[in-house]
Deep mutational scan, measured.
Amino acid sequence: KWTITVQGEEAIKWAIKVAEARNLDYTVHIDGDQAHITIE
């Protein structure tokens, strides 16, 4: 299990796209213009 933090709307969209493309189980916690994405 690991967490990445991305900043900015484009980076958030990209990170989610990558997680979905790899069929990963993930949760997103949005904090202002940052998102913390935890991959199970």
Rank of each mutant, 00 (worst) to 15 (best):
N23F: 08
D33K: 07
E40F: 15
T38Q: 06
E10G: 07
A19W: 05
T38N: 04
Q7G: 04
E40Q: 13
N23R: 10
A35Y: 12
G32V: 04
H29F: 13
T38W: 06
K17T: 09
I16T: 04
I4Y: 10
D25T: 15
K17L: 12
Q7S: 12
H36F: 13
H29K: 12
E40T: 14
A15N: 01
K1F: 09
I39T: 02
G8E: 02
H29P: 01
I4A: 01
T5H: 09
T3E: 05
I16G: 01
Q34F: 15
R22M: 15
I37E: 00
T27E: 07
K17I: 10
Q7H: 12
T3W: 08
H29A: 09
G32W: 05
T5K: 05
H29W: 13
A15D: 01
I12H: 01
N23S: 08
E20C: 14
I30P: 03
T5C: 13
I30W: 13
T27L: 05
D25A: 15
L24V: 05
K13M: 10
D31N: 09
I16F: 04
T5V: 12
E9Y: 11
E9R: 10
D33Y: 07
A19N: 01
T38V: 12
V6P: 00
T27M: 06
R22Q: 14
G8P: 01
A21C: 14
K1W: 11
T27A: 06
K13P: 01
I39N: 01
H36D: 03
Q34M: 14
T3F: 10
D25R: 15
I37Q: 00
G32I: 04
L24Q: 05
T38Y: 09
I30A: 04
G8N: 03
A11V: 05
K1T: 11
E40V: 14
E9G: 07
E20I: 13
D31P: 01
Q34S: 11
T3A: 05
K1H: 08
H29S: 10
L24A: 06
R22N: 14
G32L: 04
G8S: 05
T3I: 12
D33C: 13
V6R: 01
E20M: 11
D33G: 08
T27I: 09
Q34Y: 14
H29D: 08
A19T: 04
N23K: 11
V18S: 07
T38A: 05
H29N: 08
K13R: 13
E20L: 10
G32S: 04
A11I: 05
V28T: 02
V18R: 06
I37H: 00
D31W: 09
H36V: 14
A15R: 00
K13H: 06
A35F: 12
A35Q: 03
T27V: 09
A21T: 10
A15Y: 13
I30F: 13
I12L: 13
W14V: 04
H36G: 03
K17D: 07
N23I: 05
L24I: 06
I4M: 07
A19E: 02
T3H: 07
T38E: 06
A15M: 11
E10Q: 10
T38C: 06
V6N: 00
G32Q: 04
N23T: 04
T5M: 08
I30T: 05
R22I: 14
W2I: 06
R22K: 12
T38M: 07
T5A: 05
D25S: 15
I37W: 01
A11K: 08
I37F: 14
I4E: 00
V28E: 01
V28N: 00
I30M: 12
E9M: 12
W2E: 01
W14E: 05
G8V: 06
L24R: 05
I12P: 00
V28L: 11
E9N: 07
E20S: 07
T3R: 09
I4L: 10
I4T: 02
N23P: 06
T5P: 02
D31Y: 10
K17F: 12
H36A: 06
G8K: 02
A35I: 11
L24E: 03
A35S: 03
H29T: 13
G8A: 03
I37T: 00
T5Y: 11
V18A: 10
Q7Y: 14
I4V: 07
V28D: 00
K17V: 07
T27N: 06
Y26V: 05
A35N: 03
D31S: 09
V6G: 02
I39G: 02
I37L: 07
A15G: 02
A21S: 12
I16V: 07
K1M: 09
A19M: 15
E20T: 11
I16L: 09
T3N: 04
K13Y: 11
E20A: 08
V6F: 06
E10L: 11
D25M: 14
T38R: 06
V28F: 05
I37C: 04
I30Q: 06
I39D: 00
K13T: 06
T38G: 02
V28P: 00
K17P: 01
D33R: 06
A11M: 12
I37K: 00
R22G: 12
V18E: 13
A11C: 15
N23H: 12
G32R: 04
T3M: 10
I12T: 03
T5D: 03
I37A: 02
L24M: 06
K1G: 08
E9K: 10
I4C: 13
I39M: 08
A19L: 15
E9T: 11
A11S: 06
T5E: 03
T27Y: 09
H29R: 14
I16N: 01
H36K: 11
K1D: 04
T3K: 08
E9A: 13
R22D: 06
W2Y: 10
D33V: 07
G8W: 07
D31T: 09
E20K: 11
V18Y: 15
R22P: 03
W2L: 06
K1Q: 09
A15S: 03
G32E: 04
I37R: 00
E40M: 14
G32P: 02
Q7L: 11
Y26G: 01
H36L: 12
Q34N: 09
G8D: 03
A35E: 01
A21E: 14
G32N: 05
I12W: 07
D25G: 11
I30Y: 14
T3Q: 06
Q7M: 13
A35H: 04
V28Q: 02
L24Y: 11
E9P: 10
D25H: 15
L24G: 04
A19F: 15
E20H: 06
A35G: 05
W14T: 04
I30K: 06
E10Y: 10
E40P: 05
Q7T: 13
Q7I: 14
I37G: 00
H29Y: 13
Y26L: 04
D33E: 09
V6D: 00
E9W: 14
A11H: 06
Y26A: 02
W14I: 05
I16S: 01
R22F: 15
D31G: 03
A21I: 11
H36M: 12
I39F: 14
I37Y: 02
G8Q: 01
I39K: 00
D31A: 08
I4P: 00
K13W: 11
I30G: 03
K13A: 12
T3D: 02
R22H: 15
A35L: 07
I16M: 06
A21Q: 11
A11T: 05
A15I: 14
A21W: 12
Q7W: 14
V6S: 01
E40R: 14
D31I: 13
A35K: 04
V6Y: 04
R22W: 15
H36T: 15
E20Y: 05
I16Y: 03
A35T: 07
T38K: 04
K17H: 11
D25W: 14
Y26Q: 00
G8T: 05
Q7D: 04
A35P: 03
Y26W: 07
W2H: 03
T38L: 06
I30E: 03
V18Q: 13
V18I: 13
E40H: 15
E40S: 14
E40A: 12
D33M: 09
V28G: 00
T27Q: 07
I37M: 05
E40W: 15
V28W: 06
V28K: 02
R22V: 11
I39Y: 11
I39E: 00
W2R: 04
A11Y: 08
W2V: 05
N23A: 09
H29E: 13
E10F: 12
E9Q: 11
K17W: 13
W2D: 00
E10P: 06
I4S: 00
H36Q: 10
E10N: 09
Y26K: 00
K17N: 09
V18W: 15
